[in-house]
Amino acid sequence: MTSAPRPPAPPSSLSPSRANDFMQCPLLYRFRVIDKLPQKPSEAATRGTLVHAVLERLFDAPAAERTAPRARALVPGQWDRLLKSKPELTELFAEDTGGERLAGWLSEAERLVERWFSLEDPTRLEPVEREMFVETELESGLRLRGVIDRVDIAPTGEVRIVDYKTGKAPRPEYAESALFQMKFYALVVWRLKGVVPRRLQLVYLGSGDVMTYDPVVADLERVERKLHALWEAIRLATETGEWRPRPTKLCGWCDHRELCPEFGGTPPVYPLPVVLAESREDEAGRMGPVGADAGRPASPDGS
């Protein structure tokens, strides 16, 4: 028996993915979080999920048995498990009657897994956590959550957060954007455990690069301010129903172009109650200014 879909509700937490959605395009955030529109499976994203599953399962084996041949051999079985948990993925290769495209796709997953062995040595790693779900509530009430690919702890107690990427490393000018997710996780770990991770590490299997960053408290405080500013913008958009599209070159990959006003579409009827501008102004008038910056919208970088 299929469970009934959950009724629309205001956002209650923030993850790195959804924060990035809002920064990329507020209307995309609305489609995914408020309207809960389904996303079409893609070969690239699904391959990423498959590779992550293989690298997670490899650590089930004793250290000496964590070899490249063993990892490659895990790919077909993990693909079968993924299909069983998400039958809709069969759509990806529905027209591949001869199986050639699927075979090539699986071979590429195997190549990505094998490349990992040139970047890290799993025989010398003993992760304390894999695919670790983390969640914390800040003093403001903002709830943060996410899933960390791997957490290592050195004998000295230092924490390293590791994330696998199946794409290529970004150009230097985009490095800060790439690190946002990792700083998000570092903030959650800091607020949960009271420990600032010693190192954040992004492993890019598509290009064979490793990006590292050693955060300090000031970094995490800046991220916290940025997230509060984002959450305030999300709260305002939720109340008003004003989710403005932000056209970029990424629009070409969006699943929801036919619903976007920028491309002549019409979004679904907004499913949440809207607070009228007059009501918000009345409430603000009753509360009065709350500081020197009252009435000035916060910028996403927290400044």
Score class of each variant (00 low, 15 high):
Ala175Trp: 09
His52Phe: 01
Pro127Met: 10
Leu28Trp: 06
Ser303Met: 10
Leu144Lys: 02
Ile34His: 08
Arg246Trp: 01
Trp253His: 11
Leu55Phe: 15
Glu221Val: 15
Gly208Pro: 06
Arg57Gln: 12
Met132Ala: 15
Lys40Val: 13
Glu258Lys: 12
Glu242Gly: 01
Glu224Asn: 13
Cys251Pro: 03
Glu91Asn: 13
Ser299Val: 10
Gly77Tyr: 09
Asp282Thr: 14
Asp149Lys: 01
Val188Cys: 02
Pro38Gln: 01
Arg66Leu: 13
Gln181Glu: 15
Thr248Gln: 04
Leu119Met: 15
Pro127Phe: 10
Ala71Asp: 10
Phe117His: 03
Ala169Asp: 05
Gly141His: 02
Gly302Asp: 10
Gly285Gln: 11
Thr240Arg: 04
Leu276Trp: 08
Pro170His: 01
Gly157Val: 06
Cys25Asp: 03
Ala94His: 06
Glu283Val: 08
Val196Ala: 05
Asp163Ile: 00
Ala73Gln: 12
Arg6Lys: 14
Asp219Trp: 12
Leu82Lys: 06
Glu95Trp: 05
Glu100Leu: 11
Val134Pro: 00
Ala73Asp: 15
Glu262Lys: 11
Val223Trp: 02
Gly208Phe: 07
Arg222Phe: 12
Pro215Ile: 09
Ser13Glu: 11
Leu89Val: 10
Ser303Val: 13
Asp163Pro: 00
Val203Trp: 06
Trp105Pro: 06
Val216Trp: 06
Glu43Ser: 08
Pro16Leu: 08
Leu192Ser: 12
Pro5Asn: 02
Val75Phe: 09
Val162Phe: 00
Gln24Ile: 05
Pro76Met: 08
Ile148Phe: 01
Ser15Cys: 06
Tyr204Gln: 07
Glu56Cys: 02
Trp190Thr: 09
Leu236Phe: 07
Leu50His: 09
Pro26Ser: 00
Pro41Leu: 07
Asp255Pro: 15
Leu50Phe: 07
Val151Trp: 03
Arg160Asp: 04
Glu176Pro: 02
Arg47Tyr: 07
Leu259Arg: 11
Ala61Asn: 12
Asp60Ser: 14
Ala284Val: 09
